[in-house]
Design a protein around this nucleic acid. Structure first.
Lengths: 148, 148
DNA sequence: CATAGTTTGTCAAGTAGTTAACATCCATGA
DNA sequence: TCATGGATGTTAACTACTTGACAAACTATG
């Protein structure tokens, strides 16, 4: 078969899903999808440095540095120095930020459950497993390991 | 299961694949992945208007309009008016543009075949079919139909 | 201890997209 | 026929990223 066809299919599917997530988040939480990812990723870590968060998000340190003021202005994230360490910053969700991250994640989860409820003919657990398998297999490849 | 997990898996897989494609294209053809998509999409249509090409690429008309000079400067694409139609422009690959699109697509196809050659334990045809099925099913949903 | 190297965070400049506004061209129907 | 409405292509201003350069702060080694 045409082996690049599957990459197009994947891209299309991801586009549809991310667009849906973005619309839900904008409509209900005044949040873009990428702002949502920022908050959720930050929540999943324990007071990360900007540098580490950048790595988790797959963007540059500069990108995180530039976006921080937006979250600080809205009192969603606090930036602090750890005493005895003049070099690294420490990022943390505020109570408000944590509430927003949790609520929006729960909401999205519920929406996707509805979205997927009619896909009876497809075993989604199975599909997830297969996709992870493919990712793992591709990852064995030295070229790809360097990318991520 | 956590139904949003699959969306993360999909995003990660797409990121890995697109990064690999981008690196191959830059290294071998001085082309970014999105420039490649521009050329390949243009090639797959018969002298489309910028507006139609934008729709195919899933970007705005403004984006296509802004990028056209880059391709014209490199003599990869010609922009012309159809006589008797003062409104629409007509886009076409030059001979050089067509050669580049064809060669880079063939190259990428070959590389992905190598990449996928060790995924014996996964039936990629089957996976592609399943992904298309999921996309179809989600598409039934009125909300998503409006997005794409 | 000094110093050479590494990591971090930020800034500046560049790229690729967006939306909104606009002029222009074409089609359509009163 | 002509006025109006819709689609097209361009521009301007904005957003979110990139890379490269940099200073400051740590780390490790002679």
């Amino acid at each position: 078969m045409n082996s690049s066809r599957i990459t197009f299919t994947l891209n299309e599917l991801v586009y549809v899903l991310n667009s849906a997530a973005d619309r839900h988040l904008r409509a209900n939480f005044d949040l873009t999808y990428s702002q949502f990812l920022f908050l959720v990723t930050l929540m999943s870590q324990n007071k990360p440095t900007p540098s580490f968060l950048a790595e988790c998000l797959g963007v540059s340190r500069a990108a995180v540095s530039q976006r921080l003021p937006w979250f600080q202005d809205r009192e969603l994230v606090t930036v602090s120095r750890v005493s005895g360490n003049e070099k690294n910053l420490s990022l943390e969700l505020t109570r408000k930020g944590e509430a927003l991250a949790t609520q929006s994640a729960d909401f999205l989860e519920k929406e996707f459950r509805v979205l997927f409820q009619n896909t009876d003919s497809v075993d989604l657990d199975d599909l997830d497993k297969t996709l992870r398998r493919v990712k793992q297999l591709l990852f064995r490849n030295r070229e790809l390991r360097n990318a991520a």
